[in-house]
Design a protein around this nucleic acid. Structure first.
Length: 283
DNA sequence: CTTGTACCCTGACCGC
DNA sequence: TGCGGTCAGGGTACAA
């Protein structure tokens, strides 16, 4: 469930706490959390002793630059990339939180200030990998624009959708087209823009693309201000909940009256995911 | 190049 | 009280 606003909220929580801290000890509770063909042993060896630079985010990835032990003024030696996917979450504390939210230890990074960064992931769909800055650049170049960034204009979105026949909902979920939008905000943005999620992406006219562009940006910005949407699994750092769930217009509201026309919200399945929309307001 | 589908994983929930 | 089935969905692998 974590999409751009949720992952960015995690980044904002973690960045100031991690900056300059060295990794003193590593504990991998489940080997399958280490991705990219790396063994847990090599991962641990590679991060041990290194220091955190400023945490970054791209799409739904958290990026932790790791510097040589001498300090964070030197070059980035490795990027520790984390994808939390559905149920990954972080706590930063001197002891593992004694709460149900942190009952599934995944990976612990003990820091030089005595605190530990705890990664917990019930379903273990998320994970960690290590990339050189060059390897990361190649991956990042394959991702679509950041929807809250300057390069994401209505004209850019128009160029992205123009040649595509896939449904516009699927296009919004495709990280190579637009980075960071997931199932919740795709449905919410299409609702705000008044566009049926089944419409072929390339069939949107200039005015519809303009509305969609504004809607995507607005919904992500507002969700970010609310620290994300906590429906069941997502938590920001140390168990903190987001609050955007109170402002959802259609997502997970099948049968509930549309805020605009009171007609019941519909649910369909696209690309194996639920889409929610109002058949009256979206066309 | 495009588009679609299976898979990973656990827990919540539902009907019986 | 248990038990099987379904669903949640991000990203990737792979097929067509």
């Amino acid at each position: 469930m974590p999409e751009l606003p949720e992952v960015e909220t995690m980044r904002r929580d973690l960045a100031p706490l991690l900056r300059g801290r060295r990794i003193r000890r590593v504990r991998v509770h489940h080997d399958d959390l280490i991705l990219g063909g790396l063994s847990a042993r090599s991962f641990s060896r590679a991060v041990l002793g290194r220091a955190f630079g400023d945490a970054d985010r791209r799409a739904k990835y958290l990026l932790f630059p790791l510097h040589a032990a001498e300090g964070i003024d030197g070059p980035v030696e490795r990027l520790m990339r984390v994808q939390v996917r559905m149920t990954g979450r972080f706590a930063l504390a001197s002891e593992r939180p004694d709460s149900p939210e942190f009952r599934h230890p995944g990976l612990d990074l003990e820091l030089d200030d005595g605190r530990t960064l705890f990664y917990d992931d019930v379903r273990r769909l998320g994970g960690f990998d290590l990339l050189t800055p060059e390897a990361w650049k190649a991956r990042a170049d394959a991702l679509g624009p950041e929807p809250l960034g300057r390069t994401f204009t209505a004209a850019r979105l128009a160029r992205i959708v123009a040649p595509l026949r896939a449904p516009i909902k699927n296009t919004l979920l495709d990280q190579r087209r637009v980075a960071g939008v997931g199932n919740i905000y795709a449905s919410e943005a299409l609702y705000r823009a008044g566009i049926d999620p089944r419409r072929p992406a390339g069939s949107l006219d200039t005015e519809e693309v303009r509305r969609l562009h504004r809607a995507v940006r607005a919904v992500l910005r507002e969700a970010l201000e609310s620290a994300g949407t906590t429906l069941r699994d997502y938590r920001a750092v140390n168990g903190r909940s987001g609050s955007f769930q109170t402002r959802l217009a259609v997502y997970q509201r099948e049968g509930v009256g549309c805020p605009g026309c009171a007609r019941p919200i519909s649910r369909i399945v696209q690309a194996g995911r639920s889409s929610f929309f109002c058949a009256g307001c979206q066309s």
